[in-house]
Write a protein that binds this DNA or RNA. Sequence first.
RNA 1: GGCCUCAUCGUCUAGCGGCUAGGACACAGCCUUCUCAAGGCUGGAACCGGGGUCCGAUUCCCCGUGAGGUCACCA
Length: 385
Amino acid sequence: MKVITRIPPSPTGNLHIGTARTALFNYLFAKKNGGKIILRSEDTDRERSKKEFEENIIESLNWLGIGYDEFQRQSERGEIYKKYIEKLLKDGSVYEAEEGVIRFKNPNTRIKFTDVVRGDIEFDTSDLENFVIAKNVSEPLYHLAVVVDDHESGITHIIRGEDHISNTPRQILIQEAIGATRPIYAHAPLILAPDRSKLSKRHGATAVIDYQAKGYLPEAMINYLALLGWNPGTDQEIFTMEELIKQFDLNKIQKGGAIFDEKKLAWVNKEHIKRLSPEVQKGMQIKTLKEEHYIKNRPDLDVEKMSWKNFSKEDTKKCLEEVNKLIPDTDAIMKYAERVGKGNVLWPLRYALSGEEKSPDPFTLIAVLGKDESISRVKKAIEIL
RNA sequence: GGCCUCAUCGUCUAGCGGCUAGGACACAGCCUUCUCAAGGCUGGAACCGGGGUCCGAUUCCCCGUGAGGUCACCA
């Protein structure tokens, strides 16, 4: 049996981190099994669906490197749904209610299904009412559209968020009514905000594009997302997409929700940056450096932090005066530093330029600031001394 | 509230009956003449509670408690 999975976002917002993580799991699982993956835009809600969101979702998925084999748009599949709704109407599985919508006739049975990550789950559907499956024959709603699409596309595995567990019995009911085979379910835990509630817009940056804008590497994002709710069972924490595909396993998906921690994302990002070529790293460093407050504005300098170790203020001052004549000649400064003591020269130089105890090296700073600005910053330091 | 799901350091997690409960992030301290937004070392930090089962429970069962999800003509 060929594995077929799906990524079914609703274009009512930018690609959400939670959706991206679920998309990733579907992608990894399909790739690992040599399967197929379908991106399905669930835009049956004409009011809320926006073209721009669909574009954002596609772009974000692209940026992350999550590919797919086929693209579908529910708004273009009206005829297919209509055919099913009419058939259900005819055989009496659904009926038109007084309000004019179409409801599913609840058979009030017990539905039991096996979830790959949670085991057996059982529902008594008599707790459910006769739920609405379409506004009319031409306007299907979520449950109907999903079940029909999954069936028509031959979806074998539905990997989705835990928030869909309670939707499952309804969908199974519809499956049985249209004679569809039941796919295998795997409900992944939710990605949580720091307060342990479902991560949503009110928690700030929740769209993939927000992190793209912050300068995170797509590889880092993928890596971190994969680790939220899944782990390989080893101590490995840094992965490439290829490694993830190779190691991914539905059975190792976590049960409990995981809080999204940007600090750890930042660490993962740093680890991926380290694996980049020195040239690319330098380019990224310079790009992000330009946004630093201490590059945009002259820093306030603290005389006490100006000297390295026990080197005197007077000597530090002399060093800086010498160095200032050499800027921006890197080799000359380095040669001088080796003679006088690297720390004695490089620390105060870097501090004079950035005003930070931790910052990139002085030569990078000179490159970013430019000759004139560098010289005047060092001059300022000399004055204070 | 009904139904469903979940429960190991602050966070992400390993553990699948016997471990000094491991790793990572974060945090704290120390080291490092500085091309250091680095690296290294050390440290503090967890099995929600109560019953069982068992020679023995973090691990299996039950009950609590807590957290979350879901109850739309949204998806």
